[in-house]
Amino acid sequence: MIQFEKVVKRFGPRTILKELTLHVPAGEILFILGTSGTGKSVLLKTLVGLLRPDEGEIWIDGQEVSKFSEIEYLGIRKKCGMVFQQPALFDSLTVFENVAFGLRRHYRLPEAEIVSRVHSSLAAVHLPDASEKMPGEISYGMQKRVSLARTLALRPQVLLFDEPTTGLDPITTASVNLLIEELSRQFSTTSIVVSHDMTCALSIADRIIMLDQGRIVEEGSPDHMKRSQVPLVKEFLAEVVT
């Protein structure tokens, strides 16, 4: 479904992704873990064309997309919905209009279909009554869920989560993590989750990748990661134990 082939991304003199190669089969829930600044978010952004790789290839559904134009990327962005680290809701629009935003731009749907999709997406994130509220009137955790509903409304084949639980309290974190698993299984999507949360990764992921300084230092199933001798993985596991 998704392949990164020797992808290199540089910002000035700093190389963030160093010949990174990664394959993600359809339907998998993949967690990418790593310390801050190792290129996790950059990886997601190169996938949807918000950043362009300096070298290497990115394949999505058999198409090499790294050289796509902004117009060509529109199709990829329909397939790959991204949930950002911040809720990134539009302040001047209601929750309903926020969720409908992508539907109105990506598709020419009748209004009744848009209304139905918005309400079903909000129901899927357990916010059926929030549609008329403004983003400023709801909590940060709710805003994150609206952001997820906005992405879900497009019915993407791939869901990309950029640190979905950053800044949330433990209870909301648990509910968002549960939601990720529930929605990924329910809609049979391929999900790539960038996170620091090893506990969540061990309980939800089909596969976990540990990224360090732009390279994959370990990958495998949750059980494999629990037995890993890689120092960075052990440090993350130590956090789980404590």
């Binding site: 918000l50 911040q86 990134a88 992508g102 906005r150």
Partner: peptide, 14 residues
């Protein structure tokens, strides 16, 4: 900085 401009691109708008 709140990624709204990136979100707009991802939602099919310029």
């Amino acid at each position: 900085v709140t990624e709204q401009l990136d979100a707009i691109r991802c939602l099919g708008a310029d």
